[in-house]
Write a protein that binds this DNA or RNA. Sequence first.
DNA 1: ATTTTTGTCAGGGAAACCCCTAATGACTCC
DNA 2: GGAGTCATTAGGGGTTTCCCTGACAAAAAT
Lengths: 215, 215
Amino acid sequence: MDKPKIMLADDHGVLLSGIQLLLSKVDEWEIVGIVSSGEEAVENASLWDPDLILMDISMPGIGGIEATRQIKEKFPHIKILMLTMFSEEDYLKKALKAGASGYVLKKAVDTELISAVRTVLQGETYIYPTMSSFLFKGFTEEKKDKDECPLSAREKEVLKYVALGFTYQEIADELFVSVKTVETHKARISDKLNMKKRSELVRYAVSQGLISINE
Amino acid sequence: MDKPKIMLADDHGVLLSGIQLLLSKVDEWEIVGIVSSGEEAVENASLWDPDLILMDISMPGIGGIEATRQIKEKFPHIKILMLTMFSEEDYLKKALKAGASGYVLKKAVDTELISAVRTVLQGETYIYPTMSSFLFKGFTEEKKDKDECPLSAREKEVLKYVALGFTYQEIADELFVSVKTVETHKARISDKLNMKKRSELVRYAVSQGLISINE
DNA sequence: ATTTTTGTCAGGGAAACCCCTAATGACTCC
DNA sequence: GGAGTCATTAGGGGTTTCCCTGACAAAAAT
């Protein structure tokens, strides 16, 4: 048979029992092992070769984040679902950077945890609904900054191209104006923001959401 | 009393009845109105003054996205929860940009929808778990590209500063080398990548994760 | 052992950039 | 209706930066 294999990594005995019981109720997978520290998780990942590891963040020794990093380094095919009580933005980002495919809070209800496990096993990503708001700053908070931004629409347009590395000539061609116009805009921008170095302008443009990686 | 007021905007009669029934079961809020087009939603938002609008995306006339934009423009305090069958990345991003506070798929189970409404009413954001993976591209997929990067460590370092808008002189001071050295590195980078325009280098640096908006 | 890559530097000319000045239209404020 | 502010558009002249062509030694690859 080919039921997915799940490994648990958590040092909270009581919770562990609960999770074990809960996951056992569903006949879609089987629990192949339980560990209670980050080191054990790394060591046993190769032995039991699970499809998914339910990983706590706060564990003795190396935490769940570092364990995730090491496991994903050696065995990229193993999916890792963080199960933690930390609802801070920082932990979520670190977990994702370490290679986790999902993030669920321990206050989640049974159906949510099962749904998360199922989702991650399918190769998708599951982020606890209220946590995902951390991931799109810049999407919604654009307008709040506009009030404080002393630049005109045209100036912001110019700044955007400047920050993206366009030369004044290129910007001029893009906006169908003279190079001199672009230079003036840039001068006024530098003056208003009191930033003379181009690198400062780039940082400002990024902070204002004028340029965005997620296009 | 001050129960939160909820308004429904959807043109699917059957589904509407279901949602109405489902939300009525919970005694935490009351449904104050039902509309079946984007225009109606905008018009009635001020009349009924709901705390939350459950909004479909595909509706006659202006869709739910545009309706959301107009409502948030005039009445920023009204929370909007998108309820749609579209699971595409583009719709999620557009909805968030328009000002939606939540995004739930119609295939969600009852508890999820109730949880979403509750979350959004509390002022938080609720994103359907499997949808949020669209929001953090660049977090996880950084290393995959690094292998193909033909640049040396020093060159990548220089490129980073170039992309951040530093001048050669500034980079030289930063790295304690001659300006001419920096210029040579930049020339090699342009040569290797076949990119002569600075803006292209910025884009490349971003795509390689050499510079990151998320600090 | 020889070729290639890497890191370091220079000179000269071209291009980009910066500072100062300024005209025009739009807008507000008496 | 004028006076002032601001946005947008430019030009002249000087300065900095950038690009191209070389160069050479150390390290790495072959």
